[in-house]
C-alpha cells in the first residue's frame, strides 16, 4: 500500500498545488470585483488578502475553501510519510506457520495479557516484555502444545520457572536478563526432556549447570555470557596482519 502511495504521492501534491493556485486566482478575481484597490492590493501584496478575507468574507469564502483544500491535499503525502510508523499495528502479531500458531507480543503497546487465554493452541510464544511476570504465566498454562517460549527481559522468577516445568513439549526457552536462579534451573529444567535450546545470558545460572544440561542430551544449545569485552590495545604492533596505512 505504501509503495503505491509513494508512487502517486507526487500527483497528490500536484493536485493540491493546482487547487491552491485556482483558489488564489479566484481570490484575486473576487478582490477585483469588490474594487480595483482591493484587487491590486491582493495581487501585488498577498498579505493584503488577510485583510480582504475577513472584511469581505462572503466574496472570499469559496476561493478560501479551494486554498484550504489545496493545502490539506498537498501536505497529505508529507504527513503520511512522517507518521508512517503510526500505521504499524502494535497489537498482538499472530501468524500460522506450517500449521502452527506463532504469537508475538514483544514490544506491543498493550498491558492486558488476557489475550493469551484465548489462544490455547499457540506453539511459538514470544513475549519479551518487562511487565511479564510469574502471574502472566498462569495465562499460558492451557497452551499444552507450546514448543518455543521467549521470556527474555521479563520479570519472571523461580516461581515462574516452576510453572514452566509443566510444558513437556517445550523445545526452546529464552530467559535472558531474568532473575531465575541456578538452583531453580537445575530443579525444574531437568524434567523437560525435549528442551534443546536455552538463552541464559544475564542470569546467575552457572556455566557448569549449563554444561551439564547440554551434556545430558546431544544437540542441546545454549546462549551464555561471553567474557566481558577487553579494551582494544592501542599499539597492535608486531602483528603480521597490521597493514601499512594508505600511501605509507
Amino acid at each position: 500500500m505504501f509503495a503505491a502511495f509513494e508512487e502517486y504521492a507526487v500527483y497528490i501534491v500536484i493536485a493540491g498545488l493546482v487547487a491552491l493556485i485556482i483558489g488564489w486566482i479566484a481570490l484575486i478575481a473576487a478582490a477585483f470585483r469588490v474594487g480595483k484597490a482591493w484587487g491590486y492590493g491582493v495581487l501585488l501584496m498577498p498579505p493584503v488578502a488577510l485583510l480582504f478575507i475577513p472584511k469581505h468574507y462572503g466574496m472570499a469564502r469559496r476561493p478560501l475553501l479551494f486554498i484550504l483544500w489545496g493545502l490539506i491535499i498537498g501536505s497529505l503525502p508529507y504527513l503520511v510519510s512522517r507518521l508512517g510508523n503510526v500505521f504499524i499495528d502494535l497489537g498482538p502479531y499472530e501468524r500460522m506457520v506450517e500449521g502452527e500458531l506463532h504469537l508475538t507480543l514483544t514490544g506491543w503497546d498493550r498491558k492486558d495479557y488476557s489475550v493469551l487465554k484465548a489462544r490455547p493452541g499457540t506453539v511459538v510464544l514470544q513475549m519479551a516484555n518487562s511487565d511479564v511476570d510469574d502471574a502472566t504465566l498462569e495465562l499460558i498454562l492451557p497452551m499444552a502444545g507450546l514448543k518455543e517460549l521467549d521470556l527474555n527481559d521479563t520479570a519472571i522468577t523461580d516461581a515462574g520457572l516452576a510453572k514452566l516445568a509443566a510444558f513437556k513439549n517445550l523445545k526452546v526457552l529464552r530467559l535472558r536478563n531474568t532473575k531465575v536462579t541456578d538452583a531453580a534451573f537445575q530443579k525444574w529444567m531437568a524434567s523437560l526432556e525435549h528442551l534443546m535450546e536455552v538463552d541464559v545470558r544475564g542470569t546467575t545460572i552457572a556455566p557448569e549447570t549449563i554444561r551439564q544440561w547440554r551434556q545430558a542430551k546431544t544437540g542441546r544449545k545454549a546462549m551464555v555470557d561471553r567474557p566481558p569485552a577487553l579494551p582494544a590495545p592501542s599499539t597492535p604492533g608486531g602483528n603480521s596482519n597490521q597493514l601499512q596505512p594508505p600511501g605509507g
Binding site: 504499524i88 502494535l90 507480543l105 514483544t106 514490544g107 506491543w108
Partner: peptide, 18 residues
Amino acid sequence: VPEGRIGTDFIAAGVGAR
C-alpha cells in the same frame, strides 16, 4: 516482516520492528 518461520524469528525483535 516476511511471512513464514523467518518472520517469526525477526518479529521477535518486537511487533513494531520492520
